[in-house]
């Protein structure tokens, strides 16, 4: 695909970057990315990915916009309250950039629809709000050999990882359940403990940046790493996340490394 004059102007700040340039922008326009959850993390991630010219952007969320979302879910307007998040997000993103093919998946992810949905995407980004869905996303990504960008927030804290545990041509890393083997008891939700909107912006943008790096080959993505962001201290650290040999999803002790 070649770019027209408007596209050359629109993506000019990418085109001058040696890490992206023309080939990187071509790769972005050919990429198919699915966002699971169009909330505090999904909104900024979707905005930057659509603006960056990602070719196909899927938005999965079965929820509708609520007033309490608007403190951090910056894609939505007050007039969106009560309407589908996926559809309203698509509407706003398409106004910002008409180039991407944006698909609203206005339904809930389940064991039975995950494979079919994920199969048509290259990269899955998980910014959902519960551990059960995170486990479901991780398992489907592992089984299908999809790269998973996973992030979470709570209060002033954020965590981001990139997982590649399944079968594909890239080196294998830990999966999400190597980090979180079982659903934590009495897990806190943002509804209970709160979260700062600006923090979701930082972490959601980090997911988008990791996605752009994976697509264009720029730099070193957080593969097999965990980025921990402490918003109260404005301190971040990146640590190693090794495979848990006993992981029930990808661990070698369970013979899960080579699914047939």
């Amino acid at each position: 695909m070649s770019f027209n004059y408007d596209q050359i102007e629109r993506y000019s700040r990418h085109l001058v970057l040696k890490e992206i340039g023309g080939p990187g922008q071509q790769a972005l326009s050919a990429a198919k990315v699915l966002l699971v959850g169009v909330g505090g993390l999904g909104c900024p991630a979707a905005m930057y990915l659509a603006a960056a010219g990602v070719g196909t952007l899927g938005l999965l969320d079965d929820d509708s916009v609520a007033l309490s979302n608007l403190q951090r879910q910056i894609l939505f307007a007050t007039t969106d309250i009560g309407k589908s998040k996926a559809r309203q997000a698509r509407h706003h993103l398409q106004q910002q950039n008409p180039d991407p093919n944006i698909i609203a998946h206005n339904f809930r992810l389940t064991d039975s629809n995950a494979h079919e949905l994920f199969a048509s995407y290259d990269i899955i980004i998980d910014g959902c709000d519960n551990f059960a869905t995170r486990f479901l996303v991780n398992k489907a990504c592992h089984e299908l050999g999809k790269v998973l960008i996973s992030a979470a927030v709570g209060r002033f804290d954020g965590q981001v990882s990139v997982h590649n545990s399944g079968n594909n041509s890239h080196p294998k890393t830990a999966c999400y359940q190597c980090l979180v083997p079982s659903i934590p008891p009495e897990a806190e939700t943002c509804e209970q403990v709160g979260v700062v909107g600006a923090l979701t912006g930082i972490i959601g943008s980090t997911m988008a940046l990791e996605c752009i790096k994976l697509i264009t080959g720029a730099g070193t993505p957080l593969l097999g790493k965990l980025l921990i962001w402490d918003g109260l201290k404005a301190a971040a650290r990146t640590i190693d996340l090794p495979v848990d040999p006993a992981c029930i999803v990808c661990g070698s002790e369970h013979g899960q490394n080579n699914p047939v």
Binding site: G37, G39, G40, L41, G42, D126, G127, C128, D129, N130, F131, R134, A151, A152, V153, G154, R155, D157, G158, Q159, C178, L179, V180, P181, P184, A187, E188, T189, C190, V195, T200, L226, I228, I239, D240, L241, P242, V243, D244, P245, A246, C247, G251, E253
Partner: peptide
């Protein structure tokens, strides 16, 4: 480096180790 949970019982701490307790968060 994260210590895999299955290795908690067999991983012995060494003098001078730096340990961080990382609480799981799941919000989005």
């Amino acid at each position: 480096q994260i210590v895999p949970r299955s290795l908690f019982s067999q991983t012995e701490l060494q003098d001078g180790d730096h340990i961080e307790i990382v609480r799981f968060i799941g919000g989005g």
